[in-house]
Design a binder for these strands. Structure first.
Lengths: 244, 244
DNA sequence: CGCCGAGTTGAAGCCTTTCAACGCTGGTGG
DNA sequence: CCACCAGCGTTGAAAGGCTTCAACTCGGCG
């Protein structure tokens, strides 16, 4: 099996011991490959496992009684997902592949083992969960208090920031596998208005498009204008207990 | 010192051992009392501690460059707050007292101790963080995909559900210490529209008001209509490692 | 070759915001 | 002690951003 996406993620914050790496490897079970649109876990279904993303994108989404959909988060390599199954046995959101992707199962019981034997990893996972909570807050602020153009720009900057991590360099363009309908469901807009907003950003020289390739002309400028903060760069680890 | 709100919260999910209780008591430092409107922690400020709420309400909010504000969450007795300081030393949100309240400090370093010595507590804290993440998702869905009346009803139901826990019974009314401006900032609406929406709910027989007292006429009906889910009732603990 | 999903565009309507004004209440200082 | 002031709640009217409805194009897949 190839290298774990989760281990790679954790090592960006902390130099893991051999034991810590082994504990995670042991917990990760069978690998699952998904095609775009395939569902990994359905809202309301029962689940006794989390998933680690190794490659590709997914999203988690909630359905409304009225028939709409809200995309809650996008998940990239290194993310530990399906975390709602930690607190309940029923999934609170649907996990769907956006691109081709591979994930591995991580049974809840094995997570318990990690918490028992690797307190430093437990702390780091807790810190990452706290960071994700803050990222969620940013999204809430964006949807609650910003107009369509700014929401869209922020989403594109967020995707760019996440991809820059794995790309290992400062890129300014990427392939966007999302439909405009998906984008609307992520931003709380209709697909029609997403389309108009995208075209307005093009006209205003904020972005360029070529097929599904999107280029942000001056990412740093846009980050300043929207007040975008990358929540995934650094995580403080000084408070963590030492490795055993 | 009176009984810790956090211990009470955790014991709703798990029967704690004497050692576990002691570990938390040891970590909780000086008690702080706040009056409505007082700020416990300011966005951008540095902080090396979390806080445990023992009594009263607070909220966390983010400011926008444009001048607006988004209230992210309300915090009640038993909540562990300021968790953004777990991942960074800078606070990402401002914590403000809504009512009179008392909290205690919980230094990050002591949290590290708890993670090292009490893996079961660590797991439970992680599960609670996961549950909060889901609650945040619910809010995102509400703001992204629902109209003003439904957002407001959902907020009132959420407050009711939280108060029912500490009230220890099925209540259907409560004192609402929030201004309409606060409510607007929590729901992504203007205070003017909040006012119109409140009056519409009164006219439609959804709520009654008497000063700051709010009564929801048929909470169960409204829960069904809005698809409200109480995320704070049960948390699964079967996967947790055993107490040492 | 035809169909279906995705993207695009126009026009009309609705929900929410903005701007403005006024009453009420509780706290403060003369 | 009381007048004043500031903040909150309330309401109206007009404007604006986003949605809805509808139609048309384009490209890929069966």
């Amino acid at each position: 099996m190839h290298r774990s996406g989760l281990i790679a993620r954790l090592e960006r914050h902390l130099a893991l011991t051999e034991e810590e790496r082994a504990a995670i490897s042991r917990a990760e079970q069978r690998e699952i490959r998904l095609k775009p649109g395939e569902i990994l876990m359905a809202e309301g279904g029962t689940s006794h496992a989390l998933f680690v993303v190794h490659y590709g994108w997914l999203h988690s989404a909630a359905r409304l009684a009225a028939g709409g959909r809200q995309i809650l988060r996008f998940h990239y390599a290194g993310d530990l997902i399906g975390t709602s199954s930690i607190a309940w046995s029923q999934a609170s959101a649907t996990l769907t592949a956006v691109s081709d992707c591979t994930v591995t199962e991580l049974p809840k019981a094995d997570l318990g083992q990690i918490f028992r034997q690797q307190p430093r990893l437990a702390g780091l996972l807790y810190a990452i969960a706290a960071a994700e909570n803050v990222a969620m807050s940013d999204r809430l602020t964006s949807i609650g208090r910003k107009g369509a153009a700014e929401r869209l720009t922020t989403l594109l900057l967020d995707i760019l920031a996440r991809l820059r991590v794995t790309a290992g360099g400062v890129i300014d363009s990427f392939d966007l596998p999302l439909t405009q309908s998906d984008i609307g469901d992520a931003l709380g807009l209709t697909k029609v208005h997403v389309n108009r907003t995208i075209r307005a950003l093009e006209r205003d020289g904020v972005i360029e498009r070529n097929g599904r390739r999107v280029r942000i002309l001056d990412p740093e400028l846009q980050m300043r204008r929207t007040g975008f903060v990358d929540r995934y760069g650094e995580i403080e680890t000084a408070w963590l207990p030492p490795a055993p």
